[in-house]
Structure formats: structure tokens, C-alpha cells
Simulated scan of single mutants.
Amino acid sequence: MELLLRLAAVALVAAAFVAADGTGTLSPSFYDATCPGLQPAVRRGVAQAVKKEARMGASLLRLFFHDCFVQGCDASILLDDTANFTGEKSAAPNANSLRGYEVIDAIKAEVEASCKATVSCADIVALAARDAVNLLGGPSWPVLLGRRDALMTTKAAAEDSLPSPTSRLPQLLHSFSKKGLNARDLVALSGAHSVGMAHCSNFREHVYKDTKINMTYAAQLRAKVCPFVGGDDNLAPLELQKPDKFDNGFFNDVITGQVLLRTDQELLGSSGSHGTTDALVREYAANADRFAAEFAMAMIKLGNMAVQDGEVRLNCRRPN
């Protein structure tokens, strides 16, 4: 019952964002008349991908985050390099790491077959992230729709905007603040690491140099997954117990010092004015319903970095 009440509040938050949108175009019902089969088509595509490989759900969620953090939710992350620009795919936070492009391509092709030149790639990415979370056992939420796709992007924009996996808490808070996101949003969205895996290259510094990590856990990672030299692409789960189920177990791992990324461990035990994140970590670890609802609200807020300037790409990988 508590979760239902909290998710009802999420729907009200979405309605508030619609009312606050100056263009009046962002709405969960944006395609109801022009492409009524959109949301079932996206869910089918995501369900097929997740059934084949549960980790793909986490990858689609990450794709949305990396898209929105760079010049807004405009599908710029999907653009291949052209003669005019080098895109985001080769940026350090994305190269050999982001996945799911083919899943979005397949969904876009199905949507184009029934609703030609109608649905933006950015909206498909947003819907896919929501459905991925829900199919892995997490909450659902009303996705605001009506975005447009970027005409170009740059590698530098991604490297300037995306947080590093080695960032300290003040850097993380500053990075999120620049996007209009607060400490609660940071902690809630970090809960996305309840699912998925990370490469050794992204957590080597944490397991070899940081003192806040559980030393037994660090020793196991050093011995089995992440040598001091080599093995950059070796994978380990971001959550210990249920890495393919979206739940609040990640926050218990933070409390016990058993998370892969420095950015995740930074949420607990930082001194000074940033201690507020400690309370949020413990709050979400103790209350799965609260985490689910506040994650959904943070995703709506993140997705509201929408772009109405641009186009509806026919191919998500290149401008029309």
C-alpha cells in the first residue's frame, strides 16, 4: 500500500512537470493520437532484449542517463561520428562501455514501420529506460514525451559533463547541481547500480587505493577479477546479492563498503556539509518502497532535461 501511495505521488510530480513546461509539449500522452502503439512496441523490444540478457536492462538505463547528462535528453548519445563532428560514443566515460544501441535501433525500426517520422529517438530511449527498470523488478512511472533529437554533438561535451567513476562527493554534488539535481536525486539515481556490471578499469583505483572499501571484498576483487595490471575489460556485478534485480540492496552494499565504484562509496561517510547523503543511503536501505518511489521521481526530473529544438530522426545514428 505504501508503494502504491508513493507512486501515486510520482504521477502527481509528472503532472506538475507537464504544467511547468513552458512549451506545453511534454506530456505522457504526446503520441496517443499519432502513434498509439508506441509504448507497447518499446516494451516488447526491451522485454525481448532483457529476456536474452538481463544485463541489457541496466545498459538501457545507463544509456538514458548518459544521454540526458550531455546537452539534455536529445538522443545525442546515439549519433555516430560524421565528417562534421566526433560524437559522444568515443568519449572516455562511454567508449567500450555503453551498450544497447542495437536494441534502440530495432525498436525504432518497428516504430517507423507504423508511425513514420513521428517518434523521436530521445523518447524511445526514455521509454526503454523506464521499461528496463520495471522488467527487472523496479518501479514504473509516467514518461513525459515530446522530445526532439539533436542534430549534432561532440566528444568534448560528454567528457565535460559526465561524472568520473573516481569522483569525490563534492564533485558529484556539483556535477548534479549543474543539471538541476540535488543530493536526494544523486543518491536515488545512484541506486541504478542495483543492476548491471562494471569493468575493472572503472573500479581498479577504488579497490587498490581507497580505505573506505571493505578490505576482504577488495582482496577478492584483486585476486579474481581486477589485477593491478591488465584485465581492464573484466566484469564484476555492481550489486553483490541480486545484480539482475532492481531493488534497494545496493544501499546495504554501500553501508558495508562492498561497492565497486568510488562514486558509490562516496555516498556514505563523507565529512562536513555533505553528510546529508549518509542519511539518504540509510533511509533507502531501510525502506525499499521509498527508494522505488523517489528513484521514479528522480528519473522524471532527469528526463525533464528535454529538448524541443531539433528533429525526429529517421535513423537514430545520424541526422536526417
Rank of each mutant, 00 (worst) to 15 (best):
S194F: 00
S190Q: 13
H199T: 00
K224D: 12
P227S: 02
V195I: 11
S201K: 03
G191Q: 07
L221N: 12
E239H: 01
Y217Q: 02
L186C: 06
Q220V: 15
F176P: 01
G231D: 03
Y217H: 01
L186Q: 11
M197C: 10
S190D: 02
L238Y: 15
E239T: 10
D210N: 15
L221D: 08
M197Q: 14
D233A: 14
E239F: 11
N214D: 15
G180M: 03
Y217V: 11
S194I: 05
N202A: 15
G180H: 08
L240K: 14
G180A: 13
Q220C: 13
A198V: 01
S177I: 07
D232S: 04
K224H: 08
G196F: 05
L240H: 14
A188W: 00
R184P: 01
F203M: 08
P237R: 11
R204D: 06
D185Y: 13
I213L: 05
A219P: 10
R204V: 03
M197T: 14
V187A: 09
C200A: 01
K224F: 12
A219D: 09
G196M: 08
G180D: 06
M215Q: 05
A183V: 00
K224P: 10
C200P: 07
N182Y: 03
I213A: 09
Y208D: 02
H193C: 07
P237H: 04
F203E: 13
G191F: 00
G180K: 01
D233C: 12
L240C: 15
V195L: 12
V225H: 06
A218C: 05
S190R: 10
H193E: 02
K209T: 03
L240T: 15
S201F: 10
H193P: 06
A218H: 05
Q220E: 15
R184W: 11
F228S: 05
N202P: 03
V229M: 12
L189F: 05
G191W: 06
H199D: 04
A183E: 03
D233M: 13
S201C: 11
V207E: 04
A198Y: 00
G180C: 04
Y208K: 09
V195T: 13
D185A: 11
A192C: 12
F176D: 09
G196C: 05
L238P: 10
H199C: 05
A236E: 08
G231M: 10
V187C: 14
